[in-house]
Nucleic acid binder design. Structure first.
Length: 104
DNA sequence: GGAGTGACTTTTT
DNA sequence: GAAAAAGCCACTC
């Protein structure tokens, strides 16, 4: 039985490049309301590059908080990466969020 | 088995 | 509109 976390990772991997998803959607896809549990899974993030944690945002379209990989990384860098993938970030918020939102 | 934590969400002040 | 509090679920110690 895979842990709840691994399911989150699997779903995250399904997110195509240039799209984003929300913690809420993931939790809903898993038939649960463990929004924070999803965040927990991301925080553990055993799959650094395979799981695009930066593609997961809050329900409002804001970036939320990311840990980067080490203490030096900040959210700003992740935003740049998202922008490179085709996602427009404006003032820590995703532009055209609804269009970029990927649902399961 | 119980208490604490968390990269959240929603409602209310 | 922004900030704070409460609520919720799963994981870890």
């Amino acid at each position: 039985m895979k842990s709840f976390n691994e399911r989150c990772y699997s779903l995250l991997k399904k997110v195509p490049r240039g799209k984003v998803t929300t913690y809420k959607e993931i939790a809903h896809a898993l038939k649960t309301r463990a929004y924070q549990a999803v965040g927990n899974a991301m925080r553990n993030n055993p799959y650094s590059p395979e799981v695009p944690c930066h593609r997961v945002v809050k329900s409002e379209g804001s970036i939320g908080g990311f840990r980067g990989e080490k203490t030096g990384k900040v959210i700003s860098d992740k935003i740049s990466m998202l922008r490179k993938e085709g996602i427009i970030i404006e003032n820590k918020k995703i532009k055209n969020f609804e269009k970029k939102l990927f649902t399961f």
